[in-house]
Amino acid sequence: MVDSTMMLSSLWDLLPVRDPAFFDIILLSLKVTLTAVGAAGLIGLPVGAALALGRFPGRPILIVIINAFMGLPPVVAGLAVFLLLSRSGPLGQFGLLFSPAAMMVAQFGLVLPIIIALSRQTIEDLWLEYREQLTSMGAGRLRAIPTLLWDARFSLVTSLLAGLGRAFAEVGAILIVGGNVAGFTRTMTTAIALETSKGDLPLALGLGAVLMALTLVINALAFAVSRLGARFAG
């Protein structure tokens, strides 16, 4: 007990806690990524369900395209959002470029295909299993959507966590559209990417440790959720 407390406190000493920028950077990262993934989940889950149950021409092509977008390189996403938000771009008049909002948009675009694609697959598999039963009970495709979303809840939370992991670790997109402006758009990953070479090693190391811890927490959550889900899957 004493040992671990001592270890924790010496770890704490290693972190650049006296650097006020340290916490601002972490807070901004959390704000940007949680907002982006939250919005992507709000939109991506119903869209994924609709894509799983919908019947319309072009559906297979749409599915392939969205699956492909799961692997979209962050720098390409960043470039696209940059062009969209730059002064001469279609959304240029809002002056969002190099702001936290721009970073949220970029991460939203990066995570949305992941959430749509994963939830579509999950819900389509579950529909295959439930279809006959739900039809017999009088639930059509539309009525089936809330049932399937709820019964797939554990897998869906796992997809959200996958999106969260990707967004936290990502640097290319937010660097391009955010610009790593100190105190405004500097996040954990952009700070590490750019401050290391400038010699601010303690800050970079501290942020790296926080990122690792976050990744660990996300994976632990994913593990716990899937264990819980297995119980209900019988």
């Binding site: 299993e129 439930y130 006959e132 039963q133 017999s136 009970m137 049932t147 709820w150 019964d151 889900g229 209900f232 899957a233 019988g234």
Partner: peptide, 12 residues
């Protein structure tokens, strides 16, 4: 109503 040969119980 019908009880299927292999009824599907929901994950609830």
């Amino acid at each position: 109503a019908m009880v299927l040969q292999r009824p599907v119980l929901l994950r609830r």
